[in-house]
Amino acid sequence: MFAHCTDPSTLSGLSWLACYLTNGKHLAFYASFGTVMLLLLVTAPAALGFGFVGATAARSRIPPLRWFGQIYTAMVRGVPEIIFFLFVPIAMDQGFEWLRHQVKCPDWTEPVRQGNDFLVCAAAKLPLSNSPQWVHEAYNFGLAVLAFAIVYGAFAANVLSGAMKAVPKAQLETAHAYGMSDRQTFWRVTVPQMWIYALPGLSNLWMILIKATPLLFLLGVEDIVYWARELGGSKTSIYAYPHPDWRLYYFLGLLVFYLLLTRVSEVVLARLTRRLSHGQATMAGEAQRKAAV
């Protein structure tokens, strides 16, 4: 980074530290904070989408669809999410490749599972093994996002189906009395009104999601936990910057990062709740109306 960093062994004190903290590895570490934020920003809407579909399916009139929705919403209740994280990405990776294999190589005669090998034809590989490294990394990250979206989508489905039930019955009956069909009532009355009831649950879910991001490390994504462990471990003189075991400091740094992130989220969500309560037939909305008078 700096010009005087070319030979770190001659440095000491602050200039050593300045060079150390700006070497290639540390830049990758700083970039991984971006990875975590990206995961949060992509996963949150995706999980909400999965949750909406799940909650809607759970109220469906068609039995198989309803069962699917109910099993999906129930699945996070009984099983720790870390098990899904260890299982879902491998299962999905092999599933996708198998599907592509069926489509792209119909004349392949050898079995897909040869002993321990899971072998699909080269054209069905995901990503193609001759694609550049960033494609592989993006694909892994995509699998991680999908795993997060599926698991936290189930949480969101729980929250949303509760919110759908919380919309006052009288409003639905009024809509029916106006001659709206079930579908119209759902889209025009239930959906616009459910958000205020869902907000406490969704705020919580956002907090849960923030605190679940270190699990990215278990999915093989080079996230902040990976780099903190890699950088903090003691280094012999084969490295340009030898140092003893500093993992405690790196993890303290991560702790501060997460505490700041939750604090900022709390403040923003509290503001959002106040805005959304405006004009709603809830206690908070009523309090705002009285204060304004």
Binding site: P8, N23, G24, K25, L27, A28, E230, T236, I238, Y239, A240, Y241
Partner: peptide, 10 residues
Amino acid sequence: PPYNFINDAG
């Protein structure tokens, strides 16, 4: 190290 490691350039 020394078999394989990530050097300081990453």
